[in-house]
């Protein structure tokens, strides 16, 4: 843990000094040790503020799209975060040559809200980053945790109306703070469909129906793109298990179109692609 932090500081310093990166996106101190914050180091003097511990759960790729295209950025990524990078590169939101990827081989981060380790029931929890330039430490060994979709079993086996009870209760809690949207690295649309007034897709004030409109459309917009970092659920102030729905959509994409999102730069995303052989049975 301390090794990774030291390596991170060391690399950040080198990259900023040599000018290979104009900014280093990593983690910084928050109001206590359990709540680190996203941090952008812009000068060599900032490097000392960088920290890394098991509470650094944020997906820093969220901030990449805030910089103009062409900015040289170095970014610290964990396994899920590196998959986000691949998706953003497929969408040409960032260019491969502009980004220096500092891979962090670490899993079992701790969610500061629940105090529990983040496992594959709330995130993808791959051991190592999929794409990186510099790996800050030794690769983590594989471990058999079962499928990340195992957690869905209970919901999938529910009767339709019981599932509706479950989701309608969850979505009724939503206060429409849009923290899920703000935390999501893929939600970079400006304006978001829900902020449009022409057409006005749903009421701006929270109600079950307008919340459903927002969330279901958002799930659809992330189909074949969501990389299961689980940031939406961790950001949610009323604890809606949004990641479960995202997992379900990812699972269906995987089963129907035989491709996992964010695993290879050569892939074309499933929703902007088609195969003539796609069966009509998927519509049943």
């Amino acid at each position: 843990m301390k090794d990774i932090e030291n390596r991170l500081k060391q690399e950040a310093k080198r990259l900023l000094e040599s000018g290979e990166a104009e900014v280093v996106l990593a983690y910084g101190r928050g109001y206590d040790e359990k709540h680190p914050m996203p941090y952008a180091a812009k000068a060599v003097s900032d490097v000392d503020n960088i920290v890394f511990d098991e509470y650094c759960t944020f997906n820093m790729t969220r901030y990449l799209t805030e910089y103009p295209l062409g900015t040289k950025i170095a970014i610290a990524v964990k396994s899920c975060d590196s998959r986000t990078l691949i998706v953003l590169m497929q969408e040409e939101k960032v260019k491969r040559e502009d980004i220096v990827i500092l891979g962090i081989p670490y899993r079992d981060m701790i969610d500061s809200k629940t105090g529990k380790a983040i496992d594959n029931s709330t995130a993808c929890n791959l051991p190592n980053p999929v794409l990186y330039d510099i790996l800050l430490g030794d690769e983590v060994t594989e471990r058999d945790d079962g499928s990340p979709y195992d957690v869905l079993k209970e919901l999938e086996e529910m009767e339709l109306d019981v599932r509706w009870e479950f989701w309608s209760k969850e979505f009724s809690k939503c206060i429409r703070c849009y923290a899920c949207r703000k935390a999501c690295p893929m939600c970079y649309c400006d304006p978001c469909f829900i902020d449009q007034s022409q057409p006005r897709w749903a009421d701006k004030s929270p109600s079950l129906e307008s919340n459903l409109m927002f969330h279901l459309t958002r799930f659809y917009h992330l189909a074949g793109r969501c990389i299961d970092c689980g940031e939406c659920s961790r950001a949610c102030p009323v604890d809606i298990p949004l990641h479960l729905f995202h997992k379900k959509v990812s699972k269906e994409c995987e089963e129907m179109f035989d491709q996992v999102s964010g695993m290879s730069l050569d892939d074309k995303q499933v929703m902007v692609d088609f195969k003539m052989e796609d069966s009509d049975e998927i519509l049943l």
Partner: peptide
């Protein structure tokens, strides 16, 4: 072909949310 993929996902979303999937139908 694009529509087929999109509407297939839409149907799965509706079903997982708890709406009867029979209420949504795609026909060629």
């Amino acid at each position: 072909y694009y529509a087929r993929r999109r509407l297939a996902i839409t149907k799965k979303i509706l079903e997982f949310a708890g709406l009867e999937p029979e209420r949504f139908r795609v026909e060629w």
